[in-house]
Amino acid sequence: MTEVAIQRDVLFDNDAAAAANRARFRAAGTYVLNLMSGPGSGKTTLLERTAERLRGRVRLGVIVGDIQTRRDADRIGRHGVAVHQVNTGGGCHLDARMVAAALDVMDPADFDVLIVENVGNLVCPAEFDLGEHDKAMILSVTEGADKPAKYPLMFHESRLMILGKVDLLPYVDFDPDAAVADARALNPALAVLRLSSKTGEGLDDWADWLLQRMRQFRDGR
């Protein structure tokens, strides 16, 4: 037998596709955010509120990943933003090639901000670079404050953690300080926002964060 040393990252081809996406976003001047969370933590509802809030201020586009159905795209599309649904057909995450295919429909040049709503999953999406500029995540208070310690990778990779559904804090045993402390142990630079899509708390802060990141991307381009 012959030994062959290859030293090859298994996700090498994803990283190459992500780099191509990133070059395309840069050329188009489009800021791209990869929004991740477990299922049911409020990504789609937040994007509905975001579409309302940013209407007339920036050109917002959304790419939505789900295993099946186009329900999320239909919900977001009712708020007057361009939206494209990607069905992974069983896949637990979006990868860079799926996003590249979506860009044939959603030309980045048509948008100032493109948000990719990843498949609801607190584990796998964090592993795959899509070519985005930032990753953001939602941890809703119904999920439990122990999640950063139990599912560390997403917290490690994100620039922003949104504590979601904070209107429910009086009814659940969720210690926000403990969750933030564990998340920042993984990622000291992690920004944190408290938000409720139901009451509107934190939506202004979220919109400000998003627009500020968009401007920083443009200034640094």
Binding site: E3, V4, A5, D9, V10, E127, P148
Partner: peptide, 28 residues
């Protein structure tokens, strides 16, 4: 990743190893 440092007991550190998913060698 959130275990305290054995020396100073602080929590949190830079990941130096643990993200690898890498083919190293093959036998053909």
């Amino acid at each position: 990743p959130v275990d305290p440092c054995p020396r100073c007991k602080a929590i949190g550190g830079e990941v130096r190893q643990g993200r690898e998913l890498r083919l190293t060698t093959l036998e053909l």
